[in-house]
Amino acid sequence: MNGQAKLDRRPVLSAGLLLGVGLGGFVDGILFHQILQLHNMLSAVRPPTTVVNIEINMFWDGLFHAFTWAMTALGVAALWRAGLRDDASRSTRTFVGALAAGWGLFNLVEGLVDHHLLGVHHVVEGPGHLKWDLAFLASGVLLLTVGLALVRAGRADDAAADAPAG
């Protein structure tokens, strides 16, 4: 082992990250915005208590889902391109790790920007929203940590694939 893998991990890493961001965004949008209806995109500034405010939030939720869809589509395209390359890593641990890291990255960035920095919504609207916002950030850190550990472990898969037969 010379310490330098021949396989390129960047294509599958970036594809996994994009797909993780997209799928993580869909979890947020579908589970929290639509099924549980804990918050909407602008629910801290336009509480969904009137038809007009509900419709305005629905518009911004739709825009959020459109960007989430775009990230997922970019991830699928990146994964397809990675699959066409002979020198791209095919490590499952690297890919799953990148998916988890992407989801964690989304929770962390979206939480910091929308919940804390801009304050357009909180995970659970109401006086006790801080603990839920912090739990959301913690889930992002956890997913990111697990994902990066898997990505690191995936190096062994690439090293094994690089090793000459016999």
Binding site: R10, P11, L13, S14, L17, L18, V21, G25, M41, L42, W60, L63, F64, F67, T68, A70, M71, L74, A78, G102, L105, F106, V109, E110, V113, D114, L118, V120
Partner: peptide
């Protein structure tokens, strides 16, 4: 608010790629 999180994540993915 709707676009910035995706922009940051896209930037990270581009930096990796």
């Amino acid at each position: 608010a709707a676009t910035l999180p995706f922009g940051v994540c896209l930037g990270v993915a581009a930096a990796v790629r």
